[in-house]
């Protein structure tokens, strides 16, 4: 039985209006609620926002397109140092600096992705892992970038309002991309590359697009981080951070955007709220991953979105739905 066919294309006006309203709410909270909120708590919320940005990019690359990238923190580092350089050396608005930092990360993504994504198999995992390491070694040995001691004296601009403005922009960007012809192609890359090529679709190009977009939003997360506590250090972008982000995507569910975002919020907040166990973070993540793989290999919301859970009829798979990678 066919359900009533959903309209093929909806007018984007309602979406734009909702988006504008959400931005207004964010800045309303910034103006009227944040001043009365415990700065410690606000700090956790801002940190969650940065995790959301980093995770949504990897959800696109790994969760929807099925490409195993292990160096997401490397792109955050490019965004963070790119932003810092722009802000230190020019008089430009710091948020323009964050955008440029994102572009720098996207460019790094292009350089890493172009040669690697032609190949199928585990090359991407190995190369991105190496990229993460090389970026850190480069920063540590470049006095201009502050070396291992880090960069200090950066302006503090990242607040709740800016962070969640970027989060909303990123979520809208990635959601709309996934619900377009590109999103269908990403899911098809994950399901069957050979069949997709037989339809005349350039799969390398599709993978590079997903990868570069993912790197851009990781770069934005890094840029916001650099303007958060007046300083950045290479140690903030180590391989462990890449694994954190990976864990959030896998736990949240491949083929889902809301699942990884929920996991990102939970896994960023938990260590803060449970200070005593913070030292065991890696062990807890590892255990969580193992248990998930056994009990619920598709992750929290694998192939679904949060909103699907509130629909009475099971949602038909859409471009963004589907099996685990």
């Amino acid at each position: 039985m066919a359900g009533p066919a959903a309209p093929a294309v909806r007018s984007p006006l309602l979406g734009y209006a909702l988006f504008a309203a959400a931005i207004a709410v964010v800045w309303g909270i910034e103006a009227y609620a944040i001043p009365w909120t415990d700065p410690y708590f606000t700090g956790i919320v801002i940190r969650i926002g940065m995790s959301l940005l980093a995770v949504m990019g990897l959800a696109l690359v790994l969760g929807f397109t099925g490409q195993f990238s292990l160096g997401h923190a490397g792109f955050m580092a490019v965004g963070a140092y790119g932003t810092a350089m722009v802000v230190i050396h020019t008089g430009i608005h710091p948020m323009v600096g964050v955008f440029l930092g994102g572009l720098a990360a996207a460019f790094a993504g292009l350089l890493v992705g172009l040669p690697t994504l032609r190949l199928t198999g585990d090359y991407l995992a190995v190369v991105t892992l190496g990229f993460n390491g090389i970026i850190l070694v480069f920063i540590q040995n470049t006095p201009f970038l502050g070396g291992a001691a880090g960069l200090t004296g950066l302006p503090v601009v990242t607040n709740f309002g800016w962070t969640f403005t970027w989060v909303l922009l990123g979520a809208l960007f990635i959601r709309n991309l996934l619900n377009s012809s590109h999103g269908r192609v990403f899911a098809a890359v994950r399901d069957n590359e050979i069949a997709l090529r037989s339809l005349g679709v350039d799969t390398t190009r599709a993978k590079v697009i997903a990868f570069v977009v993912g790197a851009f939003w990781a770069g934005v997360a890094g840029g916001l981080l650099s303007l958060y506590r007046a300083s950045i250090f290479p140690s903030q972008f180590q391989f462990e951070r890449s694994i954190d982000i990976l864990a959030m995507v896998v736990l949240g569910g491949t083929g889902s955007l809301s699942g990884p975002l929920i996991a990102a919020a939970a896994l960023t907040a938990l260590p803060e709220l449970l200070r005593p166990i913070a030292d065991y973070r890696m062990i807890i993540y590892s255990l969580l991953l193992i248990v998930t793989m056994i009990v619920r290999p598709q992750g929290l919301l694998g192939g679904k979105e949060l909103i699907d859970l509130f629909r009475r009829r099971p949602a038909a798979p859409k471009a963004s739905g589907g099996k685990a990678a």
Binding site: D191, N192, I194, A319
Partner: peptide
């Protein structure tokens, strides 16, 4: 070799 994660309609739309 269909795209198992896509709907019947989207399998064709991809083309």
């Amino acid at each position: 070799r269909l795209f198992a994660g896509l709907s019947v309609l989207d399998n064709v739309k991809v083309a």
